[in-house]
């Protein structure tokens, strides 16, 4: 399987602070990849680096086989929908399409017009007076009409209401069905990722905690509940992601390719949200609470 984004020791520093550091990443082509992680994990920085909007401070990133935004051909390969889906407020919808047509050699004007028509957008309306949902649709239409190999979406639906969010995702999924397209989409809404994506990357503190086919990840993670015991006694094939104990009971989240045969466990599947949360928790730094001590 070919790779659409490859990062090696990638880092981006703003003044004194690293927004992304030592990021290693390899994303397969032809998938809809969900990038999830807590705020400040570096998702947005990573996507901006991939779109060529930022230059790396260290390491390297390759997109569709070359450095991002290196030349016109590279720029044409990548579509980008930025956070909050900015558009030119004073330009009309039709102006935006003209802009896209004039600035992109591979622009598909017929598709763009058809989509705008179907979305019910008035071509004469100024983008500044569109609703958030319509603006997002316009930005997505523009990114798609460019006919990119890779479409990058940075939290595109974060600020939209549920209906607009659904409509946006419908347009996106329809395009994925129609066009040969790799998609990387960052979101903190697990429900969107669950429906739209077939590949998951959990990014915490610049590090990829887990990456893989979504169904496979769900199928290989299990919740085990049983009498209290030490997780170290599990077979080597079972990787413990998270563990919690009461004085009697132990609850584990394990990843394994093999069936769990130990009858002392009650085994349960997990949903995507649990999986994501477990990986986010796992890497969270341990906060030591100061203990109150009796002064003598």
């Amino acid at each position: 399987m070919s790779t659409v984004i490859r990062a090696r020791g990638l880092g981006k520093k703003y003044r004194q602070r690293w927004a992304l550091q030592d990021c290693e990443l390899e994303l397969p082509a032809g998938r809809v990849i969900g990038l999830v992680g807590p705020n400040g994990a570096g998702k947005s920085t990573l996507l901006n680096l991939a779109a060529g909007l930022l230059a790396p401070s260290s390491g390297s990133i390759e997109v569709c086989g070359g450095p991002p935004a290196a030349d016109v051909a590279q720029l044409a390969r990548v579509g980008f929908v930025a956070q909050d889906t900015p558009t030119y407020g004073r330009l009309s919808v039709a102006d935006h399409l003209t802009l896209g047509r004039r600035l992109n050699p591979g622009w598909d004007d017929a598709v763009a017009r058809e989509r705008i028509d179907r979305l019910g957008l008035d071509p004469k309306q100024r983008a500044g007076t569109l609703s958030g949902g319509q603006r997002a649709q316009l930005a997505l239409t523009m990114a798609l009409a460019k006919r990119p190999e890779l479409l990058i979406l940075d939290e595109p639906v974060a600020s939209l209401d549920p209906l607009a969010r659904r409509e946006f995702m419908q347009l996106l999924m329809e395009a994925v069905a129609e066009q040969e397209l790799s998609v990387v989409l960052s979101s903190h809404l697990v429900s969107d990722v669950e429906r739209a994506c077939d590949y998951l990357v959990v990014l915490v503190d610049s590090r990829v905690q887990v990456a893989g086919d979504l169904d496979e990840l769900i199928a290989t993670h299990h919740r085990l509940v049983g009498a209290r015991r030490d997780p170290a006694t599990l077979p080597g094939s079972q990787q413990v992601i998270s563990a919690s104990h009461t004085d009697r009971q132990t609850t584990l989240l394990v990843r394994t390719q093999e069936p769990i045969l130990d009858p002392s466990w009650s085994v349960d599947g997990i949903n995507l949200e649990d999986l994501v949360l477990a990986y986010m928790d796992k890497s969270a730094p341990v906060v030591r609470r100061p203990r109150l001590e009796v002064q003598r």
Binding site: L172, M173, V176, E178, R195, A196, D198
Partner: peptide
């Protein structure tokens, strides 16, 4: 069609294909 299902449910076309 895969496209119709993907678009209507806003789900990944690969899911429908699968």
């Amino acid at each position: 069609t895969v496209k119709d299902v993907a678009s209507q449910l806003a789900i990944n076309p690969n899911t429908v294909l699968k």
